[in-house]
Amino acid sequence: MKRTVPLIITATVGVVLIVSNFIPAFRAWGEEATTFFSIIAAIAFVLGGGSLLKVHLRKISDRNAGWGYSIVVLGTFFATLAVGLLKIGVTPNPAFPDMPWAGDVQARGTAFWWAYEYTFKPLTSTMFAMLAFYIASAAFRAFRAKNLEAMLLLGTAFIILLGRTFAGYWLTSWIPIDGPFSGLRIEELSVYIMQVFNTAGNRAIIIGIALGIASTSLKILMGLDRSYLGGGN
C-alpha cells in the first residue's frame, strides 16, 4: 500500500500526460492533470508556511540559541498572513462595492501591499545585491590563472566584462568599424564569443542534460527509479 499506490499514481498520470500530447481525444485529460498539478503547487505554499511554523515553534519551545529571532519570524509571518487573508485595508472592488471580500488584496495602499513594498521588496533585493560584494572578494582571492584552462576562462571573462560596457567600445574604437579587422573590436569579440563559443558549449550541455532528463523521467514513470519514495529499494 505504502509503495504500490504511489507507483500506480506516477505511472497513471505520466501515461495520461504523454498520451495527451499525441492523441487529441485525450488532450482534455492532460489539461486536467496539469491544472490539478498547479493547484497542488499552490497548496504546497501552505506546506511551506506550516513547516516554517513547526521549525520555529520547536526552536522557541526548546529555547535554542537565537530563539528570540524565531519570535520575529513568527510575528512577521502571522502579521503578514493576517493582513493578507483578512484583506485588511483593502478598498472595495469598484464593480462590486457592496461586497467586502471582493477587493484586491495586492493593490497599492493595502496593508498586505505595505508588507510587500516596505519589507519584502527591500529585504530580498538587498540580499541579492550583497552578492556583488562577495563576487568581488572572490575575484580577488580565488581566480588564479594557473594553467591554460584557467587563462581561457579569465580571458573570456575579461572580454565579456569589457565588451558589455562602454570600456570595450572605447578601448578599441581606433579599429575602423567597416574595415576587415572590425571583428577584433572588443564589443564585437564579446558578441562572437557569446554566439559561437558560448553557444557551442551550452548547446552540448543542453543536449547532455536533455538526454539525462528524458532517461530519468522514463525510469521514474516505469517505476525503475523509486528514489523519490525514499527509504531505498
Partner: peptide, 9 residues
Amino acid sequence: AGNEAVIKT
C-alpha cells in the same frame, strides 16, 4: 502557481 504546468495548460 504551477510553473511549467501553467504554460502546458
